[in-house]
């Protein structure tokens, strides 16, 4: 039984609708990247002490996010989500040796006291490198990014008390590394 009649009325044109939707999606994604890239890349830098690697990690984070953009685009806190992706990348990289030199580089040796002013900028970043990755992540998210303890806990998949504990421990360590008057987080 085969019977074909020419349709008497134009049907909806599907292709332009899809192209338009894709373009809108890409524009939305690009706007998201443009408004969040600087902060994300800087946090990546604080985690790994290397601007090139930070750029790389940032690129990978956005690539992963674009691959699932349809699913995540309406989630209420995309920025937290991006931090989670970034931190997982950092952790993964540290786990798979070789490429870890930069992420968990041997800490520099001049950590006894507050270094002279021109070095001040690097001192904090170097001191961070002395901390375990998890603690470093807590410090970066909590103090460089100003996220609440709850948000940090969500991003890292830790309990609130674990975040508080790591935070206190990391601050104490930083204080030791950098000297009392250098640090005043509250």
């Amino acid at each position: 039984m085969t019977e074909t009649v020419t349709p008497s009325r134009p049907a909806a044109d599907a292709r332009p609708a899809r192209t338009t939707r894709r373009r809108a999606r890409d524009e939305e994604f690009t706007a998201f990247v443009e408004s969040t890239a600087t902060r994300l890349r800087r946090s990546a830098y604080l985690m790994c002490r290397d601007w090139h690697l930070a750029q790389d990690l940032t690129q990978q984070t956005y690539t992963k996010m674009y691959a699932t953009w349809n699913r995540i685009r309406t989630s209420p806190n995309l920025e937290s989500y991006s931090r989670r992706v970034l931190m997982n990348l950092v952790f993964d990289q540290a786990r798979s040796r070789k490429s870890t030199e930069l992420v968990v580089a041997d800490p520099p040796d001049h950590s006894a006291g507050p270094p002279p002013s021109p070095e001040l900028r690097l001192a904090l970043v170097d001191a961070l490198a002395h901390l375990p990755l998890d603690d470093r992540a807590v410090l970066v998210l909590r103090h460089a990014e100003d996220h609440s303890v709850d948000t940090v806990a969500t991003i890292l998949g830790l309990s609130v008390s674990a975040v508080k504990m790591r935070n206190a421990r990391a601050l104490a360590k930083l204080r030791t590394l950098l000297g009392q008057d250098f640090l005043d987080p509250e």
Partner: peptide, 30 residues
Amino acid sequence: NLRDQFEYALSADPGADAGRLADVAIAEGG
């Protein structure tokens, strides 16, 4: 405070082209 110290640590940020980041993500992620 620590926040300022972080800001200072980041002041050497060489910058990056966000548009390019997005383009590469769209190509690769796609």
